[in-house]
């Protein structure tokens, strides 16, 4: 039984998978990892569409293609975004980040914790 997922969400899931994996992936890899509940052809269509949009690059692997993400914001745009996001007020004000900077005391505490965990 396959669920209809909104297109945007599926495209996003595919893109995130490809960014996470790093190496070029075949439609089979992507299908199995991202949306095994959907049809293989659905995943292939998404990959083709993303490639047509310029978000992905691809190379031939035998009879299939292998895809990887290409869309990286241009450097000047990145700097602009960084400037906007990083102004201390901005980050504090409204954004959720994965992590914020920590004090050296917190860094030491964290190292202790990770040591104890054997990481």
């Amino acid at each position: 039984m396959s669920e209809r997922r909104p297109t945007g969400e599926l495209e996003t899931a595919v893109l995130e998978y490809l960014w996470a994996v790093g190496d070029p992936s075949t439609p089979g890899d992507v299908h199995g990892a991202v949306a095994p509940d959907l049809a293989y052809t659905t995943v292939m269509t998404v990959l083709t569409r993303l490639h047509a949009k310029g978000a992905l690059e691809r190379e031939r692997r035998g009879r299939a293609f292998a895809y990887w993400p290409s869309e990286v914001e241009a450097k000047h745009r990145a700097a602009q975004m960084r400037g906007q996001l990083d102004a201390a007020g901005d980050r504090q004000a409204v954004l959720s980040s994965f992590v914020d900077a920590l004090t050296s005391a917190e860094a030491d505490e964290l190292r202790q914790i990770l040591l104890e965990a054997g990481e």
Binding site: G8, A74, F98
Partner: peptide, 30 residues
């Protein structure tokens, strides 16, 4: 506060769901 929010939202394309910027600094925001 509202201005900061506007800037943050304006820094990405309206229909973009994932944006990877070319930067050595560690950035991860929602």
């Amino acid at each position: 506060v509202l201005r900061a929010r506007r800037h943050a939202i304006g820094s990405v394309d309206a229909d973009s769901r994932i944006s990877v910027i070319d930067s050595d600094d560690p950035v991860a925001h929602a």
